[in-house]
Computed example of a mutant assay.
Amino acid sequence: MSHTEIWIALAGMAVVTIVTRALFLMAGEHVTVPDRLQRALRYAPAAALAAIILPDLMTWHGHFTLAPSNYKLMAGICAAVFYLFTRRMVGMIAVGMAVYTALRLLA
C-alpha cells in the first residue's frame, strides 16, 4: 500500500467511527428505543467484550488450550468469579492481574 492509500484508509476509518458514535448523540431524544429492544441490548456490551477477550484467554503460546497451564485463562476465570460475587470492576482487574502474575512467577 502506498502512503496515500494508508491515509485514505485512516481517514475513512475515522469518519466511520465518528459517524457511528455521533449518530446517537446527534439524534438525542428524537429517537426512542422500545423497552423490548432496550432489554435485549442490556447484555450486548458484555457479549461483545467476551467475543474480544475469550479468544485471547483461550490461547497460550499460539495454541488453543483449556488446560490449567494456560495462566491467562486461569486468571480470567478467577477475575470473573471475583466480579460475579462482588460486582467491583477495579477489584476484578486487580485479582486477574495478581493471579496471572503469581502463576507466571511461581511456574
Rank of each mutant, 00 (worst) to 15 (best):
M1W: 00
T4E: 05
E5V: 08
E5N: 15
E5I: 06
I8Y: 15
I8T: 04
I8M: 12
A11T: 09
M13N: 13
M13W: 14
V15M: 12
V16I: 15
I18L: 09
I18N: 06
V19G: 07
V19R: 11
V19N: 10
T20N: 12
T20Y: 15
T20V: 13
A22T: 11
L23N: 13
F24Q: 08
F24I: 05
F24V: 08
L25N: 12
H30Q: 11
H30E: 13
V31T: 10
V33G: 01
V33L: 00
R36W: 08
R36S: 15
L37M: 07
Q38H: 13
R39L: 04
R39N: 10
R39M: 00
A40N: 05
Y43T: 12
A44T: 08
A46C: 09
A46L: 05
A47L: 01
A48H: 02
A50M: 00
A51E: 08
A51M: 04
I52N: 01
I52E: 05
I53D: 08
I53V: 14
L54W: 08
L54S: 13
P55Q: 03
P55H: 05
P55G: 00
P55N: 05
D56S: 13
L57F: 04
L57M: 01
M58S: 12
T59D: 05
G62Q: 07
G62N: 03
G62S: 00
H63W: 14
F64R: 07
L66C: 11
A67Q: 13
A67Y: 15
A67W: 12
S69Q: 10
L73C: 09
L73M: 07
M74F: 11
G76F: 01
G76N: 03
I77W: 06
I77G: 03
V81C: 01
F82I: 02
F82K: 06
Y83R: 04
R87P: 04
R88Y: 04
R88A: 06
M89N: 12
V90D: 12
G91D: 07
G91M: 01
M92D: 05
M92I: 07
V95G: 06
M97W: 14
Y100C: 08
A107V: 03
A107S: 09
